[in-house]
Design a binder for these strands. Structure first.
Length: 826
RNA sequence: GGGGCCGUAGCCCAAUGGCAGAGGCGCACGGUUUAGGUCCGUGACAGUGUGAGUUCGACUCUCACCGGCCCCA
């Protein structure tokens, strides 16, 4: 009796755990997933978004990496030299919080979790090239993160400025715009407030146009919704800058509707913008400050809620409309945001809903300047934003919207009071964090020389190893600030006493270039070996969750473009194709502790085995769709894999012979042809269905009369190789049952993808459907090569058709040889 | 409010504009069996959310509505 089966009632039973125990050590020894060892083979880089080391793997990892593994293994089987690397995004807040709780250094928790995950990935049978393993928290990695920061600084792409920033009161750190979701901290869910702070930024806005325009290269190979989300995030809008005079000051606003300038009846400044304070008349100061303090308590989400009544306060000054010299009262209000555009707007209540709401609340005039055919906004309370003909607008009267916009810009330019302009929703990337567990910003602040970059040969600026537990407690500034020994240093320029920058970088900086490091993970002359990168990059297939649609993917694209401009890489987009897998949910909802609907991966694997879980995930539906675990039946997968094992065992036991069976050969060829196409196009659920069909066909071949062993052996061989991408253990098991010496290196994971004989894909006869008026009336068995004319004759001669026509004359006959004829009576 | 995606048997899902069903779960039945379990096999169940339109022909394309999800406000 084989060690992988047990006898029960005289029948073999498939034991997934025994199969795993048998092959895992053999694979460890054979080390089959190394990249760069197939001479002359075309290269393909398959990348999974690297994980954060939070505890052990969960269902989400099982899905994402399971899908990525199918893709990687498929290309390996197809003979490509595949790079399928692995590492950890190991800086970040949870490690720090755990360290505070446990009185440890964050590295302790981090690296312990990484080891647990690494072993789980290994047992989960993912085809990683483990020699690529990297951790962004290793000094050997963050040295180069710091190095890249300094290059950005040299190019003016990293800079420091003071402004109102997003502040998470819970995590005690600033956040990038991208990390504020619906007014809340993306990580902890706390309501984000604003703080005035001096922080480091990456000048991503300088790349806004290229990030937008280069998306055309990604169309078709990235999910459309991701491209759309990035497009919306960058938010390019064209319009004009218009200069208003307020007292002796010039205040510029951005508007997408310069054509409505004559409709401006008041002027609004964001209450929390420094500009509001500067413009405020002395007699209004008390009222303004009271209002501003109220506004500062509000979150952005409250401020932008559309159903909220509009509030504001007069600043006691007027702004002069540059076009008609009209005096517009200036208000401070909270519905204008300080960091969008210039923080000030011209308000055109007739044609902008928010302005109209404000005008009605404050009893301000509403002047229609575009006749859209809609009802009077002053009466209906509904602003008319559409196209129309300009009225009440002096020289613009009679023009349509587009012409009026052009003309207004011309007039403004002639007078020197404005110009055409493009505005972006995208803000510069705020990268400083007041936290410990991240790459220190490699800058020294010197009383003499100011901001001084740490010289390359002094990198990395290492994190101190002696800080733990309470030392890391958030205090509103980086924990590093309290470590005098670390902070105090010599200025690299003058040698005098100086202090290190105590902030660390956003962990998204670490993950914006890791895919490059994978090409040469231990390279020590730069962040990556440019030759290695030239060989592997760009990534042929990237696999990961849609939650990174904006953050990580936009940042990585930005980094790649900067590196391209630095001459370090010869491409401008890092990821040629992107696959967003769905989420694993349970009972219609995301798994969560509070709902108590979590599904533990470990216990699923213990109950059903690795392969059954992998199959269940892939078979549940299209990879992009969410999987509701309540709809999944892992025991069904076990049943199928056991059936596969039995089929293979039965075929392996057949006496060697040359007998062939045409039906089996055709079924195998069809399966190979379909599964190849389906796997390649990521239709993985349908691939599994075809493999199940093939299993059924092989079963039939075994049970029906005299089994044709040659055909069946070929079928099981093809099945094993195709299955190796999906269920690596079971595939190896049946491969071995066919007599392959796996221990000696003849593993299914070194086998080549089967090819289908085209002759076997052509059927002898096909069923031709004959319709009358679109209704099926007859079926004809015809040759696949039948001509249109003879098929028409055949169909018209059919008794069933004659009966259906019932003497009616024929108007047309649609012939789609060889599968369909549609007879249309008059 | 704007933009996008999705509604197919009891359930999950298939179907280059051409026979609504590939595969699985569940169910029923038959065979195997000491067994209602395993295994082998057979079968039933929907006319594609609703209503129009285009077409010889619509699950597929267009429009509206209903329901669900996502992004931006």
């Amino acid at each position: 009796m084989s060690e992988t089966t047990s006898e029960r009632d005289g029948r073999e039973v498939y034991d997934p755990h025994a199969v795993q125990a048998r092959w895992l050590p053999v694979w460890d020894r054979l080390d089959l997933n190394r990249a760069g060892i197939r001479d002359g083979a075309e290269k393909k880089y398959v990348l999974d978004m690297f994980p954060y080391p939070s505890g052990d793997l969960h269902m989400g990892h099982a899905e994402a990496f399971g899908i990525g593994d199918v893709v990687a293994r498929y290309w390996m089987r197809r003979g490509y030299d595949v790079l399928h690397p692995m590492g950890w995004d190991s800086f970040g807040l949870p490690a720090e919080n755990a360290a505070i709780k446990r009185g440890e250094h964050p590295a302790t928790w981090t690296y312990a979790n990484i080891d647990v995950q690494a072993d789980s990935f290994r047992r989960y049978g993912i085809s990683f090239d483990w020699s690529t393993r990297l951790h962004t928290s290793d000094p050997g990695y963050y040295r180069w993160t710091q190095w890249l920061f300094l290059r950005f600084m040299e190019r003016g792409l990293a800079y420091r400025k003071k402004s109102a920033v997003n502040w998470c009161p819970n995590d005690q750190t600033v956040l990038a715009n991208e990390q504020v979701v619906g007014g809340k901290c993306e990580r902890c869910g706390a309501e984000v407030t604003k703080r005035e702070l001096t922080q480091w930024y990456f000048r991503i806005t300088e790349y806004a146009d290229r990030l937008l325009d280069d998306m055309k290269d990604l169309e078709g190979s990235w999910p459309e919704r991701v491209l759309l989300m990035q497009k919306n995030w960058i938010g390019r809008s064209t319009g004009a800058h218009v200069d208003f005079a307020v007292g002796d000051r010039k205040v510029t606003v951005f508007t997408t509707r310069p054509d409505t300038l004559y409709g401006a009846t008041f002027f609004v400044v964001a209450a929390d913008a420094p500009l509001a304070e500067e413009l405020c008349a002395p007699e209004q100061r008390a009222a303004f400050e009271k209002y501003r303090d109220e506004v500062r308590k509000l979150s952005d989400i409250d401020r932008q809620a559309t159903d909220r009544p509009k509030t504001g306060v007069s600043l006691g000054v007027v702004a002069i409309n540059p076009l008609n010299g009209e005096e517009l009262p200036v208000f401070a209000a909270d519905y204008v945001l300080a960091d969008y555009g210039t923080g000030a707007i011209m308000a055109v209540p007739a044609h902008d809903q928010r302005d109209l709401d404000f005008a009605r609340a404050f009893d301000l005039p509403v002047r229609v300047v575009v006749e859209t055919g809609g009802e009077d906004p002053a009466v209906t309370g509904v602003a008319t934003a559409g196209d129309g003909v300009l009225v009440n607008s002096g020289p613009l009267d009679g023009l349509r919207k587009t012409e009026a916009i052009e003309r207004t810009v011309e007039i403004l330019q002639e007078r020197g009071t404005g110009e055409g302009a493009i505005n972006y929703r995208l803000r510069d990337w705020l990268l400083s964090r007041q936290r410990f567990w991240g790459a220190p910003i490699p800058v020294v602040h010197c009383p003499v020389d100011g901001e001084v970059a740490v010289p390359d040969d002094q990198l990395p600026v290492r994190l101190p190893s002696d800080m733990k537990g309470a030392d890391l407690q958030p205090k509103g500034q980086s924990p590093l600030a309290s470590n005098d020994a670390w902070v105090n240093t010599a200025c690299p320029k003058c040698g005098g006493p100086a202090k290190r920058d105590t902030d660390t970088m956003d962990t998204f900086v670490d993950s914006s270039w890791y895919f490059l490091r994978y090409c040469s993970p231990s390279y020590d002359k730069g962040p990556f070996d440019e030759d290695a990168v030239r060989q592997w990059m760009p990534v042929a297939q990237y696999v990961g969750g849609v939650e990174h649609a904006i953050l990580h993917l936009l940042y990585s694209r930005f980094f790649t473009k900067v590196l391209h401009d630095m001459g370090m890489v010869d491409f401008t987009e890092p990821f040629s194709a992107l696959l967003n897998q769905g989420q694993v949910i349970n009972q219609g909802k995301a798994m969560s502790k509070s709902l108590g609907n979590g599904v533990d991966l470990g216990s699923q694997l213990a109950s059903y085995g690795v392969d059954a879980i992998r199959i269940s995930i892939v078979f549940a539906g299209p990879p992009e769709d969410d999987i509701d675990w309540a709809d999944v039946s892992p025991s069904g997968s076990v049943k199928w894999l056991a059936r596969v094992a039995r089929v293979a065992a039965d075929v392996g036991a057949l006496p060697a012979a040359d007998a062939r069976d045409d039906a089996v050969d055709r079924a195998v060829a069809r399966a190979v042809d379909d599964v190849t196409r389906l796997t390649e196009s990521h239709r993985l659920n349908v691939s599994i269905a075809r493999l199940m069909e093939l299993t059924n066909a092989l079963r039939k071949g075994i049970d029906g009369g005299a089994p044709a062993s040659a055909s069946l052996r070929d079928g099981v061989t093809a099945l094993a190789t195709m299955l190796s991408c999906y269920a690596p253990y079971t595939a190896e098991e049946i491969w071995s049952r066919l007599g392959h010496d796996v221990e000696g290196g003849d593993s299914v994971h070194a086998s080549r993808w089967p090819t289908a004989d085209p002759a076997l894909l052509v059927e002898d006869t096909v069923t031709c459907v004959v319709q009358v008026s679109g209704k099926v009336r007859d079926r004809l068995e015809v040759s696949p090569s039948i001509g249109e004319d003879s098929l028409r004759e055949l169909a018209l001669g059919s008794d069933a058709v004659v009966r259906a026509l019932n003497g009616a004359a024929v108007r047309t006959v649609i012939v789609r040889a060889p599968k369909l004829v549609n007879v249309v009576p008059v």
